[in-house]
């Protein structure tokens, strides 16, 4: 497999390393499965533990609310619950060895803001984590002003060991793809509200007329309406412009469920 590439020889020590993953479903499961399949020893915890905990295809996955000793990398994957995210990061910062970097989703809160919550600020690096994104061979990574190049290098090697490349972007809420994509989705829901066309027809139109890989509404369902809405709310708060006003229907949907599936 891709693990047999030359670059992986330098990550041999990482490939046997322990990883601690905490955050929201389904990103936690996605990252856990990937890391375990690449030979990592994965310890995993959820903000809201699923019941029952799903079976992982790979061995070496251990649900654990406490962080074991000797973990090389910690991942925090929450986008919708700031308080919980803060607690998770504080816990990681307290329990991980000082050399271990923390990769934290910085889609809805900048990595710089997150680093202000912990003592060892240098170890936190932002990543673009949204459901389904981990399937792709590229990841957006946002170092903060506190991140030394060595930390960024460890993060890069970690992703190489997972068969991925990284793209270093500025540490801004929404990063690149989540901002573009969620604004497309937002626009499509405004169009639904304005009765321009049915959700089904909007999806068809964007795939056939603009060559988009998915319709915006089916895409929102793939990622999860709650996640999409969290990105948009964060953009609106951060940029403070009407341009990022969140569709009221989308907000409703995020709370109440996904009614257009039945349409």
């Amino acid at each position: 497999m891709a693990q047999k590439t030359k670059e992986n020889s330098s990550t041999a020590e990482l490939a046997k390393a322990k990883v601690y993953i905490i955050g929201e479903t389904p990103m936690v499961e996605e990252y856990t499965e990937l890391c375990a399949s690449r030979g990592y020893d994965v310890f995993v915890a959820w903000n809201d533990p699923p019941n029952p905990v799903r079976k992982f295809n790979s061995s070496g996955v251990k649900p654990s609310t406490t962080i074991p000793s000797g973990v090389s990398i910690g991942l925090e994957l929450s986008n919708t619950n700031t308080e919980q995210k803060k607690k998770n990061l504080e816990k990681l910062d307290k329990s991980l060895p000082p050399t271990a970097p923390i990769l934290s989703s910085s889609v809805t809160i900048s990595a710089t803001e997150q680093s202000s919550w912990i003592v060892q600020k240098h170890r936190l690096v932002g990543i673009g984590a949204l459901p389904t994104f981990v399937e792709k061979r590229l990841v957006e990574v946002a170092p903060t002003v506190f991140s030394p190049t060595e930390t960024v290098e460890v993060v890069r090697r970690f992703y190489v060991s997972l068969g991925k490349e990284i793209e270093l972007v500025q540490d801004r809420v929404g990063m690149v793809l989540p901002r573009i994509l969620c604004q497309i989705i937002n626009e499509s829901i405004f169009a639904v509200t304005d009765d321009v066309a049915t959700p089904k027809d909007i999806d068809a139109a964007m795939k056939l007329g603009a060559n988009h890989p998915f319709g915006p509404i089916e895409w929102a369902e793939k990622i999860g309406i709650k996640q999409v809405c969290a990105v948009l709310v964060a953009l609106h708060n951060d940029l403070n412009e009407d341009r990022y006003r969140v569709s009221p229907l989308l907000k409703q949907m995020s709370i109440a469920g996904e009614w257009w599936k039945s349409q």
Binding site: I184, M206, A210
Partner: peptide
């Protein structure tokens, strides 16, 4: 393949593609 659209600026495709 037809889609029914209300007469609004940009219709569907030009409108929803704007943020891209």
């Amino acid at each position: 393949i037809p889609v029914r659209v209300k007469d609004t600026p940009g219709f569907v495709v030009n409108r929803v593609a704007r943020p891209f």
